[in-house]
Amino acid sequence: MKDNNRETILHVENLKKAYNDNVILENVSTEIKRGDVVAIVGPSGCGKSTFLRMLNLLEMPTAGEILFEGTNIMDKNENINHLRQKIGMVFQHFNLFPNMTVKKNIMLAPIKTKLMSKQEASDKADELLKRVGLEDKADEYPDMLSGGQKQRIAIARAMAMNPDVMLFDEPTSALDPEMVGEVLNIMKELAETGMTMLVVTHEMGFAREVSNRCMFFYDKGIQVDCPPEEFFENSKNDRLNDFLSSVL
């Protein structure tokens, strides 16, 4: 995936985020191409989540510009709800709706945003449940599922909107170790379908094998952004090498 002819899906320019006077991120610029699988790593508290959450405006950037498929998402005239439909997000703590069955969780947004009819949403949910291997859990409530199952449902729920890009914020950090694999497998399968993905993760194996780009966040911005081979074997960045030796 080295070719540079793929179209740009996300264009980030001089992005800045500050809470009051406390600057978290500054001068962050990057381009994400369609089909990119970006692993985002870095020490805790360096602003990885903040960066990801600004991409669908769960956090408002303090300054800078984000173009999603050519549209300035911070433009007040753009309907952010329409844009968000195309940007799926998976959270560390799943955030499934506890008062609905698994299938209802998946069907809710496509129906309420009028993306699909009830029948279409139901078919889509069945297809996705099969894909994440949980078709037998359709009528269970989330509380009955294990953490790994919950996260697979959360992925299916985000996928139901047919997004163009998927954001993952530490999707396996809240899981017991034996469940990490099942979620990473689903994500790997997703990557193989060509889905554009940005994944904040501490799973270096996943970063190395599945991603085509690794980003190292440190000191208010992206310090390293390169293919995984270079990232893990040949980096000249001391901070990154320190970080890698501490997590590997």
């Binding site: 799926g88 709706f97 947004a109 993306l115």
Partner: peptide
Amino acid sequence: GQFEASRSLGMDFFQTMIFVVLPQ
């Protein structure tokens, strides 16, 4: 997280309130 999950799926504030938050 309930708000965020719902909003990230493209549902607006009122849809989020009515279909996700208020039933709970």
